[in-house]
């Protein structure tokens, strides 16, 4: 297993290099001008100077090389320095810098990460926690009213887009419901809000309810379907009959024997879905004005901020590759029949 993991980790290096090259080339092909958003009164030679100062004068392979050095060597060194409060070398190195804000991209990402994790991450956790029991019970009582209702809700959950459910909720809970009502919920997520006491914690919960519900419903809809299908696959198998023949209670049969087997594919699906927490919630972040990573990415695209977009996209790619690896390793851990060497 360890061998396998190391082999896989080594193999991710060329994969990621290749992905980064593709991202770099694609964005370079895009006909965008970083000075395009500047006032028209700026003379052409000044614009050219700005371009030069952004490093655009150099040939593409040099720029790619510089980005590689900045992202893979300088940024990690920087993070290490900050974490351990030390200085490596002279501590002065070029970082991947956003064109529009002139601040290092990694700092921007770290700044936006908490919002995304709070809202989107929480909705994923909530989704998973709801989905698993629902999936288990739906399968156990297949075709019961509970199962039918669950099927209906999850159909709605993943066929209605989040920008629709989001706006619908905003219309109901932020505009129709009166502002002084207990049921009123803020439509804009206030990132500057700090939790200091019970009341501010209450407000934090309030402002999280809608985005978390919208995304949570979407996630739960999908995962509960997987869970149900996987349980159903297992419920008919011979080992379940054996477990019953041993006189075990239904709870043990279901929650130990069947669940343990059914979770194997579901855990994989859950792990593979985690990168989407970071990237895939762009729309919901827009709807509720959560200024997380999705928001940052959209802003970067609008401002033609190529280093920002490139780095963010690449980080998403890294997450996808990483969680693919995690999923495979989890599979090997959960299923004793799988041997990776």
């Amino acid at each position: 297993m360890l061998n396998y993991t190391i082999r896989r980790l080594l193999f991710t290096i060329p994969t990621l290099l290749f992905i980064s090259l593709i991202i770099f080339l694609l964005l370079d092909l895009a006909p965008s001008d970083p000075t395009g958003n500047l006032p028209l009164s700026i003379p052409a030679e000044v614009r050219e100077q700005i371009r030069q100062s952004l490093g655009l004068g150099e040939p593409i392979h040099i720029r790619y090389y510089k980005w590689l050095v900045q992202f893979f060597i300088n940024e990690p060194l920087n993070i290490i320095e900050q974490m351990f409060d030390i200085t490596i070398g002279d501590g002065d190195r070029l970082r991947v810098t956003s064109w529009s804000t002139r601040s290092p991209v990694v700092d921007l990402v770290l700044e936006r990460m908490p919002q995304t994790l709070w809202v989107v991450g929480m909705s994923y956790v909530v989704g998973v926690l709801i989905a698993i029991p629902i999936g288990v019970y739906s399968a156990y009582r297949q075709y019961s009213w509970f199962d039918q209702t669950g099927t209906f809700i999850s159909m709605v959950g993943f066929s209605v887009p989040t920008f629709f459910t989001g706006v619908l909720l905003i219309v109901i809970f932020s505009t129709i419901v009166p502002t002084d009502s207990f049921f009123w919920l803020p439509s804009i997520y206030d990132t500057t809000h700090k939790v200091t006491d019970l009341a501010s914690f209450g407000f934090q919960i309030r402002q999280m309810i809608m985005p978390v519900f919208v995304l949570g419903l979407f996630n739960a809809a999908q995962i509960s379907r997987y869970m149900r299908a996987s349980m159903l696959d297992n419920l008919g198998l011979d080992y379940v009959r054996t477990a019953r023949a041993k006189g075990l209670t239904e709870n043990v049969v279901l929650l130990v024997h069947v669940l343990r087997n059914s979770l194997i594919p579901v855990v994989t699906v859950i792990a593979l879905g985690i990168p989407q927490v970071f990237g895939g919630a762009i729309i919901t972040e827009q709807v509720f004005k959560v200024n997380g990573l999705g928001h940052l990415l959209i802003g970067g695209i609008e401002a033609a901020d190529i280093p920002l977009v490139q780095t963010l996209t690449f980080i998403f790619a890294v997450l996808i590759v990483f969680f693919n690896l995690i999923a495979d390793i989890l599979y090997g851990i959960l299923d004793p029949r799988i041997r990776y060497d």
Binding site: D238, Y239, R260, R337
Partner: peptide, 11 residues
């Protein structure tokens, strides 16, 4: 039971 290959829980 009949089929020992599937009658035990694999995990």
């Amino acid at each position: 039971f009949q089929d020992p290959m599937t009658s035990l829980n694999p995990v």
